[in-house]
C-alpha cells in the first residue's frame, strides 16, 4: 500500500482528490494483482453476510453454546418498539444491530471478522442501521468497508488488532475507530475529518483490557460491541461538526501500542484477570467446566492422554 499512516492516507486523498475508499480499493487491486471489480465483488459479498447476520441476530435463536449469552439484541429491539430510548432511535438501533451480530458470532453463526470475530458487531451495527436510515445503496456501504479497512490496516500495522497482543482496545477499540472514520466518509466528510474521527474514537478506548469470562467471546465482548457502535457514531458526529483530534490520530495509535505493550498478560485475553476473575466470573467459569465434564462423560470425551 502507498500509505503507512493515516496522515499519509489523508494526504494522498487530498492530492489526488479521492476518498479513502477509492485509494484503498486501488491499492488493494494493485498490490494483489486482482482486478478492482473482483476486489469490489468480494467486499460486496462480505457486506451481504453482515446484513444477514444483523437479521439473524434480531430474529433467530442466538443462545451461545455455553448458554451464557444470547437474546440481548432482541431485548433492546423490543424495548425500542415499546418506549422512547435514552439514546434516541438511530443510535439505539445501531446498538441493537451490533449486539445482534456479536450474538450471532457467539452462537456459531456466520459473521465477517471486522477486524476480529470478537469485535465483529460494531461495523455492521453502524453500517446497516445507517443504510436503513439514510436510504443508501449497498454499493455505498461497500465503499465504506474499504474506508474502514484502510483505517484498520494502519492501526493493525502500527499498533495491533489482537486482544492477546494489545487488549480489547486493539479489537473493539480498532473497530470503533474504523466505524467512526468510515461513517464520516459515508456521510460526505473529508478524509481529514475521517482521520480526526479515528483519533477521537480511539482516545476513548485507550487502556481497554481483554478479560473474557471463561476465555469465551461472550462476556463482556458482546456488550462492548453494542456500546462500541454508539461511541463510533458519537465520534463521527464530533468530526463532522468540525471537532478535531488535537493529538493526531497517528499519535493516538502510537499510544495504543504503548499501552497495549505495557498491559500485563492477565489483561490480554488469558482470562486470568479483570472481569474473568471477579467472583461471578470465576463462578461462571467453574460451572462451565463442570457442565463440560458432564457432557464429555456422556460423549465419552475427552480422556486424559495416557
Amino acid at each position: 500500500m502507498r500509505f503507512e499512516t493515516l496522515e499519509q492516507l489523508a494526504d494522498i486523498c487530498r492530492q489526488e482528490n479521492k476518498t479513502i475508499a477509492e485509494v484503498m480499493l486501488e491499492d488493494q487491486a494493485r498490490e494483489t494483482g486482482v482486478s478492482r471489480e473482483e476486489v469490489f465483488r468480494q467486499m460486496a459479498e462480505y457486506y451481504g453476510v453482515m446484513k444477514e447476520a444483523v437479521r439473524q441476530g434480531l430474529t433467530g435463536n442466538t443462545k451461545s453454546r455455553s448458554g451464557l449469552t444470547g437474546g440481548d439484541a432482541k431485548k433492546v429491539s423490543d424495548y425500542m418498539q415499546q418506549s422512547e430510548t435514552s439514546l434516541g432511535g438511530p443510535a439505539a438501533e445501531a446498538m441493537a444491530y451490533a449486539l445482534a451480530v456479536s450474538e450471532v458470532n457467539a452462537s456459531m453463526g456466520r459473521i465477517i471478522a471486522t477486524p476480529t470475530a470478537g469485535s465483529c458487531g460494531i461495523i455492521p451495527g453502524v453500517f446497516v442501521s445507517a443504510q436503513e436510515r439514510f436510504g443508501w445503496e449497498d454499493e455505498h456501504l461497500v465503499k465504506g468497508l474499504f474506508c474502514a479497512g484502510a483505517i484498520g490496516y494502519v492501526i493493525a500495522n502500527n499498533a495491533s488488532i489482537s486482544g492477546a497482543e494489545g487488549g480489547c482496545q486493539a479489537e473493539v477499540g480498532s473497530a470503533i475507530g474504523m466505524a467512526a472514520g468510515a461513517m464520516v466518509e459515508l456521510r460526505g466528510g473529508t478524509a481529514q475529518q475521517a482521520v480526526h474521527a479515528v483519533g477521537l474514537a480511539l482516545k476513548n478506548c485507550l487502556g481497554l483490557i481483554c478479560d473474557p469470562v471463561a476465555g469465551l467471546v461472550e462476556i463482556p465482548c458482546i456488550v462492548r460491541n453494542g456500546l462500541g457502535a454508539v461511541t463510533a457514531l458519537a465520534a463521527s458526529d464530533m468530526a463532522l461538526a468540525g471537532v478535531g483530534s488535537v493529538i493526531p490520530a497517528d499519535e493516538v495509535i502510537g499510544v495504543m501500542l504503548e499501552v497495549g505493550s505495557a498491559m500485563p498478560a492477565k489483561h490480554r485475553e488469558t482470562g486470568k484477570g479483570g472481569l474473568a476473575q471477579t467472583p461471578t466470573g470465576r463462578k461462571l467459569t467453574k460451572e462451565l467446566v463442570e457442565q463440560r465434564r458432564r457432557k464429555a462423560k456422556e460423549a465419552k470425551a475427552p480422556a486424559k492422554e495416557d
Binding site: 462480505y46 471478522a113 470475530a117 470478537g118 468497508l145 469465551l216
Partner: peptide
Amino acid sequence: MRFKNVFSIIGPSMVGPSSSHTAG
C-alpha cells in the same frame, strides 16, 4: 508491514465465535 491486505482487516468470512479457536 505485518498486514498487507484489506481482507486481512475486513474478513475472513467465518462461523464464530473466535478467529483463532474456530476459523483457525
